[in-house]
Nucleic acid binder design. Structure first.
Length: 556
RNA sequence: GUCCCUGUAGUUCAACGGAUAGAACGACUCCCUUCUAAGGAGUAGAUCUGGGUUCGAUUCCUAGCAGGGACACCA
């Protein structure tokens, strides 16, 4: 159990669990280690003066604690109660502190995290980046807290667009170009096709016909589609490897649910959930626009496949998190509504994030071929990092430089997204994306490397937590001990930004600490305590960055 | 047109109904003969506009204004 939990339980016991209150780590050190609004809540409920209630509360708490857990409990501001832990309590906790061991709050609950979800035959672009790295990080966090996580890549591998693509390939495609650079060749075909549709409306119909043939099992179309899919997956695997994304447990696409569709449609009809409208089959929903599940020509739609996929998922987990952009809010509201109608035993949560807009602030269109490819972005980031690494640290060998540049470049990109809780859209900005100064991933990697360097020189003597008496040291100890609570907060809120901010805050304090306090040249009694602090701090940085999917090179 | 999201320093973002609205970048001062200056110590600088609820509103409600997104045979 973390200290924060102990404190909360203590307060609950004293107040006999009668009200809901918050216990938080205040932003300012002068407000103590923990702070609660309990007195304010109580005062409101009972119509009393908040300061009086707070004073009574402090008396009660002090009597019950008798100086065991707390050094000081104090009323502050409009009626907050602030707590300062006993230094001995901190020291005892710190001695046995191990950031690798997080609370097992997940209790092996099964959750599906669906993320990344690229479209076959199209390059992954910056839009997929957010889903991929947020999803990967959340999965790591859930896993660390003992949830059973199913990482699911739901591939966009079915639909009319493949009819268009097949039509385009038959018209202009080349086997040679397909082998050489599959995704770009397919992209070019697709872009050309959508362009020519504007001047030739028959093409539109041709695309639909080819898709219908694919759905009906036409051999040639089936073969082409399989090939496109296979080649695309190979390309995606490269990108995931470059990004350091852990392996997906399941890579099932829309096509995998094709065979379930007649059953799903039949069931929806029989239960009178779906009905005909303007030739198509729809589900009417309360307070929402209707969901379309079958075209007038009988072909399936995205939504139908989603229902089939959800049925499959509900057999495997109690909860599913869709890490998908804001733009699909309506879709998931509809899915949620349908899930309730057919009574699927699974909880749905849409983890949304803002779109990445182009430099003019408009939605990026893949059809027009203007998307920035993910591989291009990653290459640029690593290249930029390489220039900096070789300048800062010229004595390194070539392969060391490459591996550090990789960690730093990718780390910069990932942290940039993970530190923010953006539901509003963001404008794509090369400089911002690749920034390594200030509040960035590389700043944390730099801090890690510096601490690591100290430990290389004297780490063996790190074995004593007793002598940490300076204010800054106690404040660092407290921040380190907060780490498990922060990870749990990320899980509860599905936000990685809490962890990112916590690590930044820790790193700032650490940089300031070793700037002013010598470690290796400290007097003997203090040296081993300071080394112990450095060692634990580094473990937290390493564990925290790992949860964000960011590497920590020993030197940079 | 309807619905959803967002509006905080010059810029990009924090703030769980509460305490003196926090950072970073950029600007300006300082600090490398001391464990990596990818750093540290400072200065200046902000809640879109009305109304309301509350002891207390950046946060909740409401009416505007501004930007973005979604809304039937795309995924």
């Amino acid at each position: 159990m973390t200290i924060q939990h102990r404190v909360k339980e203590f307060i609950q016991a004293v107040t006999l669990n009668t009200v809901d209150f918050k216990l938080e780590v205040p932003t300012q050190a002068s407000f103590g280690h923990y702070s609660t609004n309990l007195a304010l809540v109580l005062a409101k409920k009972e119509g009393k003066s908040s300061l009086e209630v707070a004073k009574e509360l402090v008396d009660k708490l002090e009597k019950a604690d008798d100086g065991k857990l707390f050094k000081k409990i104090e009323v502050a501001g409009p009626g907050f109660v602030n707590f300062w832990l006993n230094p001995e309590v901190l020291a005892t906790e710190f001695k046995k502190f191990n950031p690798e061991k997080l609370p097992k709050s997940g209790n092996k609950e099964k959750v599906i995290i669906e993320f990344s979800s690229p479209n076959i035959a199209k390059p992954m672009h910056v839009g997929h980046l957010r889903s991929t790295i947020i999803g990967d990080s959340l999965a790591r966090i859930y896993e660390a807290l003992n949830f059973r996580v199913i990482r699911w890549n739901y591939l966009g591998d079915w639909g009319t667009q493949f009819g268009k693509l097949i039509a385009a390939y038959k018209k202009w495609g080349s086997e040679e170009s397909l082998e050489k650079d599959p995704i770009n060749h397919l992209l070019q075909l697709y872009v050309r096709f959508t362009k020519e549709i504007e001047g030739d409306k028959d093409l539109e119909q041709l695309g639909r016909d080819e898709f219908k043939k694919l759905e009906d099992g036409n051999k040639e179309n089936r073969k082409l589609w399989k090939k496109f899919r296979q080649l695309s997956l190979r390309e995606f695997a490269k990108t995931y490897s470059n990004l350091g994304i852990k392996k997906f447990k399941i890579e099932k696409g829309e096509s995998d649910y094709q065979k379930n569709l007649p059953g799903v449609v039949k069931e929806l009809k029989e239960k009178n959930i779906a009905k005909k409208s303007e030739g198509a089959l729809i589900i009417e929903l309360k307070d929402l626009p209707p969901a379309l599940i079958q075209k007038s020509d009988g072909a399936s739609l995205y939504f139908t496949r989603e229902i089939a996929a959800l049925e499959d998922r509900s057999a495997q987990a109690q909860k599913i998190f869709y890490v998908v952009g804001n733009e699909q809010s309506l879709h998931f509201q509809q899915l949620q509504a349908v899930s309730e109608l057919i009574k699927l035993p699974i909880k749905i949560e849409h983890i949304k994030y803002g779109l990445v807009l182009n430099e003019e602030g408009k939605k990026i269109s893949t059809r027009k071929g203007e998307a920035i490819q993910l591989s291009e972005l990653l290459d640029k980031a690593v290249e930029k990092a390489k220039i900096i690494v070789s300048k800062k640290n010229p004595s390194l060998k070539e392969d060391q430089i490459n591996s550090i540049a990789n960690a730093v470049g990718i780390g910069a990109i990932k942290f940039n997204d993970l530190k923010e809780n953006r539901v509003s859209d963001i404008r794509f900005d090369w400089d911002k994306m690749l920034d390594i100064n200030g509040d960035s991933g590389p700043y944390l990697q730099y801090t890690y490397a510096r601490l690591n360097s100290i430990l290389q020189k004297g780490g063996k003597q790190a074995n004593n937590a007793e002598e940490l008496k300076e204010n800054m040291e106690i404040s660092i100890v407290k921040k380190l001990l907060d780490f498990p609570d922060v990870v749990m907060l990320c899980q509860e809120s599905n936000l990685t930004s809490h962890l990112a901010k916590h690590l930044l805050d820790l790193a700032h304090t650490l940089n300031s600490y070793y700037e002013s306090v010598p470690v290796l040249s400290a007097p003997k009694d203090k040296k081993s305590a300071r080394l112990y602090l450095v060692k634990k701090a580094n473990q937290v940085l390493e564990a925290g960055l790992c949860l964000l999917g960011i590497d920590t090179p020993g030197q940079i």
